[in-house]
Simulated scan of single mutants.
Amino acid sequence: MASFGGLRKLLMVHGVVTLAAAIVLAFSPGLIPRVAGVQLAPQAYLLAYLLAGAEFGIAFLSFGGSQLTDPRALRLIAGTCIVFHAASALLESYAAYRESGNHVLAANVVARVVIIALFAFFSRRTAK
């Protein structure tokens, strides 16, 4: 019998966290950048809105995936989340480097690496 429990729970938690980030970005577009030490001018809110749209999509994918039992579909969704967080971690690393060691960005990169590791671990445990 396939083991889906851990990955499905991870997808549900991921969906909640990602949805929360999307809502914050949509309704207070400058808040998350400000926490990272970045002032986002109101003229640049479109960037936060575009990211919020992506976050809403990833949250939807995570919630939907948490209800699936097909191993291939679950691994594809986990892989999509891994790519999303890996690309974000790489780009945030570059931003942290340019910001001369922004500790908030560095902490976020570490968090993304942990998320990547969790998705990799639980997607491997999903039986073929």
Rank of each mutant, 00 (worst) to 15 (best):
A78N: 04
L74S: 05
Y94C: 07
S93H: 03
T69K: 10
R72P: 00
N108E: 14
A95V: 12
A96G: 10
A107P: 00
N108M: 06
I115T: 10
A78L: 08
A106S: 10
A86Y: 07
I82E: 02
L74H: 08
A78D: 00
Y94N: 13
P71A: 08
L68V: 08
T69R: 13
I115M: 09
A86W: 00
A106D: 03
S93N: 05
C81M: 15
G101F: 13
H85F: 13
R75Q: 14
V104T: 12
V110M: 11
A95Y: 03
G79W: 00
V114G: 01
R75I: 14
S100Y: 12
E92I: 02
A111N: 00
I115H: 05
S93F: 12
L91C: 07
A107W: 10
V113A: 15
N102H: 06
A107Y: 05
A111V: 13
N108R: 11
V110T: 09
N108S: 15
F84Y: 11
T69D: 14
A107H: 13
C81A: 08
I116H: 03
I116F: 04
A89V: 09
S88D: 03
R75M: 11
A86D: 02
V109G: 01
H103N: 02
I77F: 07
S100A: 15
A73E: 14
A87W: 15
A89M: 06
T80K: 03
A73H: 04
I115N: 03
A95H: 07
I115K: 10
V114C: 10
A111H: 03
P71G: 14
I116W: 01
R72W: 07
P71S: 06
A86M: 12
I116G: 07
R112F: 10
V109S: 08
P71N: 12
L90K: 00
G101L: 10
E99A: 14
F84A: 02
C81I: 02
G101E: 04
S100R: 10
G101P: 09
I77T: 09
D70I: 05
N102K: 00
V109L: 12
N102F: 12
L105A: 08
T80W: 04
I115G: 05
A86K: 02
Y94F: 11
V109F: 06
S88N: 08
A87I: 15
R75S: 11
L90Y: 03
L91H: 07
I77M: 05
I77C: 02
A107S: 14
D70G: 06
T80Q: 04
V104Y: 12
L76E: 02
L68K: 14
A86E: 00
H85K: 11
S100D: 14
L74N: 09
A96T: 08
A89W: 06
R98G: 15
V83Y: 10
H85Q: 08
A73I: 13
A73Y: 06
A106C: 07
V113C: 07
N108K: 04
I116S: 08
A78S: 11
A111Q: 11
E92H: 10
H103D: 01
S88F: 10
H85L: 09
G101A: 13
L90Q: 00
I116M: 05
A95I: 01
A96D: 08
S88Q: 02
S88C: 06
V109Q: 05
L105V: 04
H103F: 07
Y97E: 10
C81S: 09
V110L: 15
S88Y: 01
Y97K: 07
R72C: 05
V83M: 12
E99Q: 12
V114S: 01
E99K: 02
T80S: 12
H103T: 14
A95D: 01
